[in-house]
């Protein structure tokens, strides 16, 4: 069975979802990510869904679960790049993904994770803006 690749970027993991996922693939991704967060000692997970044309309740739930699981494993999940039409539809569907952090693109998502690490790991010197 094909699987969605998970890349390591510093202390974060990056998943780019580019296919119209069937449900088993989504479940497999959830399992793979959980493993990888621990084995790679990741502190953040970026899920890029900018290529996804729809997010239904199944995928929405998967994102929620990944966020909840990673939080327990001390990693922050950020879902990035959700398209406007997808966002409007999800809201209409009744899913707010309130446990999931979001960002406009991978770069912003990465900043969000870094900022969080800076906050928790305290005093690493001041960065200039």
């Amino acid at each position: 069975m094909d699987r969605i690749p998970i890349l390591k970027l510093g202390n974060a993991l990056l998943v780019t979802i580019q296919v119209d996922m069937h449900d088993r693939l989504a479940t497999a991704l959830q399992e793979d990510l959980t493993e990888k967060i621990v084995s790679a000692r990741a502190r953040g997970v970026l899920i890029d869904i900018s290529a996804l044309e729809i997010v239904d309740s199944f995928i929405g739930r998967m994102l929620d679960h990944i966020a909840a699981i990673s939080r327990m494993l001390d990693a922050e999940t950020v879902v990035v790049g959700m398209r406007p039409a997808v966002a409007i539809t999800l809201v209409e569907l009744g899913l707010s993904l309130s446990g999931v952090k979001t960002a406009l693109n991978v770069e912003r998502g990465m900043e969000l994770i870094k900022r969080r690490l800076d906050e928790t790991e305290v005093a690493d010197g001041d960065d200039d803006e």
């Binding site: 406007p84 966002a87 999800l90």
Partner: peptide
């Protein structure tokens, strides 16, 4: 309100 929710989902 839905728009505010949708914008949040997109990261804004």
């Amino acid at each position: 309100l839905k728009t505010v929710s949708a914008a949040r989902l997109m990261g804004a």
